[in-house]
Structure formats: C-alpha cells, structure tokens
Design a protein around this nucleic acid. Structure first.
Lengths: 340, 340
DNA sequence: CAGCGCCATGTTAGCGCTCACAATTCTCAG
DNA sequence: CTGAGAATTGTGAGCGCTAACATGGCGCTG
C-alpha cells in the first residue's frame, strides 16, 4: 500500500480510502490511485485489515455427513451466500456430532476468529450441546429445531410429512405405514409427527412404526419386514397398501425389498420418500417424494447469521421454509405405463 | 496477550513462546503462563499472527458440483486433512468451471491470502485455464489429468475402466458397449480410453459410443437407444449383452430404460457403473461398479499441496490412486436369486 | 472581502503478534 | 571463587492496515 501511495503521489490513507470506496475522494485522485493499483497488481492484505478493523469477515460452518445430498447442497448454499456478502467461509466436517467433536470444532473456528457459525447439525443432542457451549460468536442452526434459544432456519418437515401422508390417504389408502429415521434426529421426529398428525386428522389409527438409519440398507431391512407382513396376512389384513419412508435412500431399499418379495409398487403397495434426491426420479418406479430446497435453506441461514452479527436481529429468530410435494409413479393408483 | 503477560508477571514475548511451544522456556514459567491463559480464556489473535509471520495458514479449495457424491467426499477429505495439519480451508463452489468463474475464484481466495489452492475441476479446459492463470500460490489439481505441468492427484480411471471391461469380457460377453460421460471431462475420457484399451487387448472392435452428461436422465435416454437396438436386431445381432456406463447415476437411468423395455439385467444385458455411490448396492439389481476412495484422494491432495508450500516438493508431481472393482448382481452370469 | 464551513488529503497512533537482538540469570569446569 | 557459555527472559521494532484527528484549500454568504 505504501508503494501504491508513493507511485500515485498520495498518502497511504488516500489509497485506503479508494479501496474502501470512501466517498470523500476526488474523482481524479480515485482514478489515479486505481490505475496505480492495477499497474502494480496490488491487493490489500486481509490479515492487516482484520487486525486494524477487528473484523475478520470470516464465518464458520459445522456440518455432519457432508457427503449426503442434503447437507452438501445446504453447505453449497451457505458458501455461495457468504461469498456474495463478502465473507470467507470455512467448513468443518464432523464424523459424528458428539459434544466433544462440536466443542473442538467451535474452538477450531473461533481460534481463527470467525464472526459467526452456521451449524448444520440436525441432532437433538448436538443442538443442545451447541446451545450450552457458549460460543464466542453468534451461532445459527440449520434444521436444529425451534425449542432451544438458538436462532435457526429449517424446512417444514412436519408439513412435508403431512402433505405426503394426506396425498396417500386421498389416493384411497385406508392407512399409511411409516419407516422413520433415527429417533435422535430432529428431522426424523418432525416427519414422524407430521405423519401422525395427518393420520389423526383423518381419524385413522397409526400403524406400528419401523425405524431405519437413513441408509438404503436399513430401508431394505424395514422393507423386508413390511413385505413379510403383507404376504403373511391374507386379504391385506393390516391395510398395508401405502408406506411413507422418511427419506429417499431408505425408500430405495424398501423398493428393492418389495420387488424381491414379489410385491409390485405401486400396484400392491405405494411407496413415498422424502428429500427428492436427483436419483429419485429414476428409481424403480420413480419416487413420489417431498422436495426440499436445501440451497435456499443455506442462503437463509447466512442471512440470519449476518443479521445477528451486524446487530439488526431482534432476539432469537426462526425461519421456516415450505417444502414441495413431488408426485411420481410410486404412488400412482394404478400401474404406470412404461415411460411415465 | 499483554493482559496474560501482566497477570503472569512475564513479558508478552514469553507468553508468545509458551503458546508457540518454543523450547527455551522454564517449566515453571510455562506452567504459570499456561494457568493464566486458561484462567483468562485467552486465545491468540490469528490475524495479528498472520500479519507478523506473513503466513496465513489458510488454503483454498475450488470445486464444481459439490452436491454430487464424488466431489463432496473429496472435499470432506481435503478439509479434514487440512485441519489436521493446522490449516484453515475455505471452499468456493462453482456452478460451472468457466475460465471467468475460475479466475474470480482464484482472486477471491488469494484476496484472503491463501497459501495454496486445491482445485477439484475435472474438466480439460478448466485445468488448462487454471494452468494459464498464474495464481499467486501453489495450485494442486484433483482429477486434473497429467498432461499439464500442474501437480495433481487422481484416481486411476483408466485402470478402473479396464478392470470393469475385462470383468465383463471374462464373464463371457463377446463385447462391451459403453455409455460415456461428457467429452470434455478428463475422467470421462480416461474411462473411455480404458474401455477401448481393454477391448483392443482382447482383440474386439469397440462398438459405437453413447454419451451422457452424468445425470440419470441422460443414462435413461442412452438406455432407451440401447434397448431399441437390442429389441430391433433379431438374434442379439450386435452382441449387445453388456454395457459399461461411465458412472452409477447414469447406470441407474440405463437400468430403468432396460426394465421399461422389458429387458432383464443381467439376464439379457449386463450393466456396470463407476463410482460406487452409496445407493449402488440397492439398485435394481445391485450394481457392479468401481469404487473410488474420494476421501483419500482429498487427503493426498493436501499432502502434495503442503509439500509445495513448505518447499519440500521437487517440481511437478502426480499421484495416482488405484480403484477397486466391486462385483454385484448386475453383471452376474445368470439371473440372481432374490436377496442376492 | 472577511469569515464560516465543508471537502479533500495528510499525519499519527495503534490493532496483537513475532522476530531479532540485548540483557539477565544460571551452570559448572578450572 | 571466577568467568565462559548456555539457558532464560526482556526490549524494541515493525508486519500492513484503518480510525481519528489535523490541516489546508475552496466556495459561499452577508
């Protein structure tokens, strides 16, 4: 910066003003300085700037399972939004959201002087640990639930589950079975609750719950159980003609189990998923599911976080985004024609 | 730091030595200072440190399509490895690897003073642009090919494709058809080349090539073409009994097209993929594929990058990791029994 | 034409840390 | 007991930048 100032024949402060877009600089000076900056290829040193302003303009992201479609998409949204707003982001990917790992992640990030943290940790315990952690900067959760006093953004899982359950009931199924995700996941609980609420409203008693761990394998195992039930009970005794699976990957496993057991989807049993991963449209058969706009979710979290950092936010805030029902062949009333 | 020094009754420099783990500090002083640090909850300011040492200990990552399984896993490996080595990482996710976007990404990162960049950009043009860009810091490519003088790490796509093609030939298929990825992707080219090489070695002429864009939809379309060919040519005229699809997602589309056309996999046509995404095991039928260890790939790239930053590296280096063939039902010689 | 105020620019003092070197203390052989 | 040399600690400067204040020049009002 001193070099630029010397060549341009001004003080270093004027150079600083030009870079910072400060208003009180004459057009002539501004042009001259800009030209010299260009010529010398000067870039201002962000460390020195951070030191002088006491602002690092850096945000941290804590996430788990970033190789899955949902978290990965959310992460991308977060990064893009932060970059647009002039912030650097640094992501820490955790293998498991234990209290210890979370503490370490927060320490790592705050050691780098992050001004805020976005935590994509959809575990009840993780959110609780995070709330108790007293991080030295604002923290915004993504899919972290609304019961703790941490600001956060979520997709309306409850509504999505309700939509899909009602869709199945409307299609003429007398009840809807459910393969849930792990009990300690907030998303899982909300989806289960939405399913229950829809059944209750329809005056239908909820069938017993099956649980998986989001993986295709666990869905496959749940599917085997369900298939066994259908085949062993003559005359469709349990009214098992429709299954709402808590995510698309498990739904894939369920579909396979049904196919292997000789059950046809949707003719014998309709299956619906949740998430709308890119593959879902090409499942056998194409899967009815709930689309979640993960990218928007990520963007919103940055918006909320920056409000807190810049002090515009009033207390704890929660944002909820609406999901979208995507109806495909897996819940069609009759067997779909090929190519559907 | 001044506070710590005052409370501990030492100079700020001694505090700095304790934090930095400098050897010449008496055990007593070290303990005292450590205690005060703990008590005051002091954390050293990374911006000031960066300013004084002229080292930011920050690395940048440039990636495209981070929502896909491969790039997302690689990214996670990169981040984890960097963190272990004491570096902060910041990822920039590009929508498309145009020269413009790359330039912008490099500028964004170097504006933050990154000491090195890992570029996960498996496009020929992107790598070329990157090489021409003259970044102000070392750049390591991931899946960036070996023909340009940018250091990089890759998985041996050529070998993987060869393995899978040979597997199919060994299984008794007279030839192997291929649904390739986009022509400008290095991975795509290498897989095609490996397929061609395996056929050549076996003395078989390569059938015409089909191309997709990695998406399930494009695989579906390619599958429809292939199915049409099988059904219209009596007596399996073209020897179309085995297809090697360049990634698992497209393979999913191909499988669907075959199923809709009434072709059975693997009885009528065997299908193999590439990548081993988590869902592949649950495709209808479970997909033979090539597993790539993306996390190791990411870790290696950091190893290589740090060698360059710390000056231990000798010129341009390329690392290649071996893939692993995963044989499943989609290429079994006879129809698999349910549950396989 | 004096005097006020505003605009453009310069000057100074840190931000919190590490480096290089100086000063002090300690250790131990002769 | 003494002095060399090593170990330990302190001092001062400066990394590159911005905030706050100081300065000087200009136009405008009365």
């Amino acid at each position: 910066m001193a070099d630029v100032a010397r060549v341009a024949g001004v003080s270093h402060q004027t150079v600083s003003r030009v870079i910072g877009g400060h208003p009180n600089v004459s057009a002539k000076t501004r042009a001259a300085v800009t030209a010299v900056i260009e010529e010398l290829g000067y870039r201002r040193n962000s460390a020195a700037r951070a030191l002088a302003t006491r602002r690092t303009h850096t945000l941290g992201v804590i996430a788990v399972n970033t190789t899955l479609h949902g978290p990965a998409s959310t992460l991308a949204g977060v990064q893009e939004a932060a970059r647009e707003r002039g912030y650097l982001t640094s992501a820490v990917t955790l293998r498991a959201a234990t209290e210890e790992a979370l503490t370490e992640a927060v320490q790592h990030l705050s050691g780098w002087g992050v001004e805020g943290i976005v935590a994509i940790t959809p575990w009840r315990d993780a959110v609780r640990a995070l709330a108790a952690l007293e991080a030295p900067c604002p923290v915004v959760t993504v899919e972290g639930g609304h019961d703790l006093d941490l600001p956060g953004v979520s997709l309306d899982q409850h509504l999505g589950a309700r939509m899909i359950t009602e869709h199945l009931l409307t299609a003429g199924h007398s009840t809807v079975w459910h393969v849930a995700g792990p009990a300690d996941w907030l998303e899982s609980e909300a989806r289960t609750a939405g399913w229950e609420a829809a059944l209750r409203d329809a005056g239908v008693e909820a069938p017993p719950l099956l649980r998986g761990d989001w993986s295709p394998l666990s869905g496959y195992q749940a599917g085997q159980q369900l298939a066994g039930r259908v085949l062993s009970s003559p005359g469709q005794g349990d009214g098992l003609t429709a299954v709402f699976v808590a995510n698309d990957q498990m739904a894939l496993g369920v579909l396979r189990a049904f196919r292997e057991a000789g059950l046809e989807t949707p003719a014998d049993v309709a299956v619906a998923g949740f998430d709308d991963i890119p593959e879902a449209e090409f499942f056998p058969p194409p899967l009815t599911t709930v689309r979640q706009d993960f990218a928007s979710l990520g963007r919103s979290s940055i918006g909320l976080l920056l409000e807190h950092i810049e002090g515009t936010a009033e207390g704890t805030t929660h944002l909820t985004l609406a999901p979208e029902l995507i109806v495909r062949a897996s819940t069609a009333r009759r067997r779909p024609t090929p190519g559907d």
